[in-house]
Design a protein around this nucleic acid. Structure first.
Lengths: 236, 236
DNA sequence: ACCTGAACACCGTTCAAGT
DNA sequence: ACCTGAACACCGTTCAAGT
């Protein structure tokens, strides 16, 4: 390669390369940014490419398809989960519930990640490390192998479904006041049902619409699951 | 209205009107047909309109949007569920499990309906009638009102999530042989993990990949939920 | 009042052509 | 080998124009 004489000193290297090379890492970074800032619907191949200043076709050199990108997002979120170091047979049930709370916390902190996770078996490294953690706690609780194995399937299924439901409902960007209005309308709807065919729905209208906003429903769910699992523990 | 003399006997009504008028009912019929025959992805406003020989914009005169059409599909499927007539306090747990099995049966018979149902609170008439049925069984089991109310939220959440997972996985139209191959590869993957960081995942590789095809995982899930709920029953 | 064609603003994925 | 523009075959929804 020849140097032209009127440009005797060419910059040894451009101070910053105009474009950092595209990598899986950078793609997931950009996708995660879009997810957190603008929700799951904003994570399209087009918008991720745009965020990186490239064409959408370029992504396919590093990521097989959208579904793989979704899996990578789930795995990235899993990195944020912090689980207790030492499984304790004395309080495994409380530890199990704490882990489920932690899963939900991280899913809420990355709104929309549940939509990437739902229906997929999480097989990334970080996701598997949380599986390992759950297995340790369940074995500390003396669950039979098969029960522990199926439980680590059931647990993310439940937590992901709860988070998914939340993101669908908050997709309309609800304020707490909106939520209250919605819950009120739903209660009125239940209370207006014909009493002959819906006696219980009508009688329990209050209970059915209670705990829609906060964590009570979720706390109920993880208690039911934990109690159900505990009933399967082997008595030594 | 005058009769022209050279056509003294006009057909009282055209034997079949060239086009039956568009109704909600007919729209849901067509959508359901597409769902069962070609899966959830085939249920688009365009294809439903095509199936009815009309333009997609015409649908919006009868259905608010795609999400409402999804809800109507879920409700239509709910019509096919058959629940026991008489809640029996002696065997409410078995009845509860039977109802969950029936929910899954109908969702499997209408493949893809889980994808229309997930994340939505089912408020159609038929869906509410099944809620009513579940409440009756739970009250027969002596559950407190609030527990029964949250349970009828938890139960469809779980069954729908299971069915959703199945439809996602069978979206690639797997034969039993394909499934076996996939499960085998997954087991090999688990067994190849580094033993220092994934000791339990490795040790339980067999259990973790067992019951992927049939009903064992689902049976485990409904047993856990039922046992957990039973632990909340009020002792009179 | 109901229906329609055409358009708008999006998708995921592929592919020939560039460097 | 990696990247790109442009295209393909789709989406849900809207709207002015028809009957």
């Amino acid at each position: 390669m020849t140097q032209s004489p009127w440009q005797p000193i060419s910059p040894p290297k451009p101070p910053r390369p105009a474009k950092a090379p595209l990598t899986r890492e950078r793609i997931v970074d950009a996708a995660m940014r879009l997810l957190v800032d603008h929700g799951y619907d904003a994570v399209s191949m087009r918008k991720v490419a745009q965020e990186l200043g490239t064409g959408q076709a370029s992504l396919y050199a590093h990521v097989a398809n959208k579904s793989e990108l979704d899996q990578l997002l789930v795995n990235r979120a899993a990195e944020q989960m912090e689980f207790p170091a030492e499984p304790d047979p004395e309080r495994w049930q409380e530890q199990l519930k704490d882990c489920m709370r932690e899963m939900l916390r991280v899913m809420r902190a990355n709104p929309g990640v549940a939509r990437a996770a739902i229906g997929q078996v999480p097989l990334g490294e970080q996701a598997l490390l949380s599986t390992e953690k759950f297995l340790a706690i369940l074995k500390a609780g003396n669950l039979p192998d098969q029960a522990a194995a199926w439980a680590v399937d059931l647990i993310p299924l439940y937590v992901t479904a709860v988070s998914f439901e939340e993101t669908v409902q908050s997709a309309s960007a609800w304020t707490p006041a909106d939520l209250e209005g919605y819950v009120g309308r739903m209660r009125s709807y239940f209370e207006g049902l014909p009493a002959d065919r819906f006696p219980l729905t009508l009688a329990l209208a209050g209970a059915l619409t209670s705990g829609s906003g906060g964590d009570e429903r979720f706390e109920f769910g993880i208690s039911v699951i934990t109690a159900g699992l505990a009933s399967l523990a082997e008595k030594p």
